[in-house]
Design a protein around this nucleic acid. Structure first.
Lengths: 149, 149
DNA sequence: ATTCATTTTTGTAACCGTTACACTAATGTA
DNA sequence: TACATTAGTGTAACGGTTACAAAAATGAAT
């Protein structure tokens, strides 16, 4: 998404497209790996030396309020953000911590007990081992048992 | 679940059933409302005046490690715990903050992109408005528009 | 352009949930 | 009873987040 298009998207939500805001949104579009506030800040401060981390917090809160961005549910204590609003699942590897996206169609999942609830968003978080860590885990087991060397 | 049964459950996992541990687990069984560490502590310290909050943290970490308890995914920064391990969904009301349980059958939800991943747990978190807050919200709107009074 | 009001950004300090750590208490074993 | 091990305690520190006041940038009106 081009910078100009991002600016227009912000204007539609009555958000003035200041440079920090444009860059935060652009960063989220380019880095789909659910960055933390600190990751966003450390990257952007390189080109905006006076950038304050508070600005990143404010901006993300503003975007989330406007529905442009989602804070993804995670079992960690640190917030992660995602510019992709459509419902999809996240898989967190318990070994390496990486957050993966996956596709999940919830229409067919039967829900009970939500009559009269107004559902605004759905977060799906799976946890376990990603393929890489799973393999290295197996190797490690073999080594520990004397299988290698 | 009786205290004795809880003790046996702990022993099965090689966890010595000390009094603080028994009481933390018992609290979780009796209070199915996904309490925070602070809520557990404030309740139990009344009967165990020397209880330390660190003990509550340690105990919950131990239980989670043993698979007896789950930390539920939430969009807040504060951890919440649940003694019910079977997969079920949580609904968080964005207005009052209450966390509700609901039933969801994920077997029928189609997943793509998780080949070779080892899934150990699934967290489902919906957010929106609970029936009560939804109603009071509607009333508020009517009042604001001059519908009442 | 200049002034003024409003919005945005900044930097610091405080907040709060959590963790590290060293010490004490309790428990199990010989 | 003595000793080793495990559990619990209290304090301090840590780290992500938020509050807040001051400074900078922007927009509107004259």
């Amino acid at each position: 998404m081009k910078r100009k298009a991002i600016g227009e998207q912000l204007l539609q939500k009555d958000i003035r497209p200041s440079f920090p805001r444009l860059r935060v949104m652009e960063y989220l579009f380019k880095n789909r790996n659910h960055p933390t506030v600190d990751e966003i800040y450390r990257e952007l401060v390189q080109e905006m030396p006076t950038l304050s981390k508070t600005t990143v917090y404010n901006t993300l809160a503003l975007f989330e309020e406007a529905g442009l961005v989602r804070r993804v549910a995670s079992s960690e204590n640190e917030a992660r953000y995602d510019a992709f609003i459509e419902d999809h699942g996240h898989f967190r590897c318990e070994s390496c911590g990486v957050l993966y996206d996956f596709t999940i169609r919830l229409e067919k999942a039967e829900e009970e007990g939500l009559d009269n609830f107004e559902i605004r968003k759905r977060d799906i978080l799976y946890q376990g081992l990603c393929p890489r860590c799973r393999n290295s885990g197996i190797k490690k087991l073999i080594i520990d048992k004397g299988g290698y060397r």
